Amino acid sequence: MRVCFELQVKPERLAEYTARHAAVWPEMLAAIADAGRRNYSLFLRPDGLLIGYYETDDDDAAQRALAADPRTTRWEADMAEFFVAEVGRPDQEAPRLTEVFNLENQLARTPSGSDRA
């Protein structure tokens, strides 16, 4: 499954947020992979809008694994100050975006070549 989420980084903290993500702690990278997330990317707009994307087989299980992992707790505590105030832990409570289009899914449903010029 593909998961996309959004958060808001404080505009005055964008440079530091970006710098910290240039070299994420190896133990945090391992925690993400151990939880079953893959193809994980973050995209940041100049106004601080952060869009995250990852793939996983079971997002609920991945969320539970990360929430229980002390490596994640330490990273999230360190990063929480970068986000505009949200309820709960920002990385765990980020609103999910609904996928409305996926090229590969639609191509798979289209008879080969029949809808292409």
Rank of each mutant, 00 (worst) to 15 (best):
M1L: 07
M1P: 14
R2K: 09
V3S: 10
V3R: 14
C4L: 11
L7W: 05
L7S: 09
L7F: 09
Q8C: 02
Q8E: 07
V9N: 11
L14A: 05
A15S: 09
E16Q: 12
Y17M: 12
T18G: 11
R20Q: 08
R20C: 01
H21W: 08
A22H: 15
A22E: 13
A23Q: 12
A23E: 05
V24F: 08
W25Y: 14
E27V: 07
E27L: 09
E27I: 05
E27Q: 12
M28G: 03
M28T: 06
M28L: 06
L29Q: 15
A30T: 10
A31V: 06
A31R: 12
A31G: 01
I32D: 00
A33I: 00
D34Y: 00
R37A: 10
R37F: 05
R38E: 02
S41H: 05
L42H: 07
L44D: 10
R45M: 08
P46E: 02
L50D: 13
L50P: 04
G52V: 06
Y53W: 04
Y54C: 03
T56K: 07
T56S: 11
D58R: 12
A61T: 03
Q63H: 14
R64S: 04
L66H: 05
A68T: 00
D69E: 08
R71K: 09
T72Y: 15
T73C: 10
T73E: 13
R74V: 14
R74K: 14
E76C: 13
M79W: 11
M79E: 12
M79A: 11
A80W: 13
A80K: 11
A80E: 12
F82M: 07
E86I: 08
V87C: 10
V87S: 14
R89D: 14
P90F: 08
D91P: 14
E93R: 15
L97R: 12
T98D: 06
V100R: 07
V100E: 11
F101L: 12
N102C: 01
L103I: 02
E104Q: 08
Q106H: 12
A108Y: 03
T110Y: 02
G113D: 10
G113H: 07
S114P: 01
R116K: 13
R116A: 13
A117P: 03
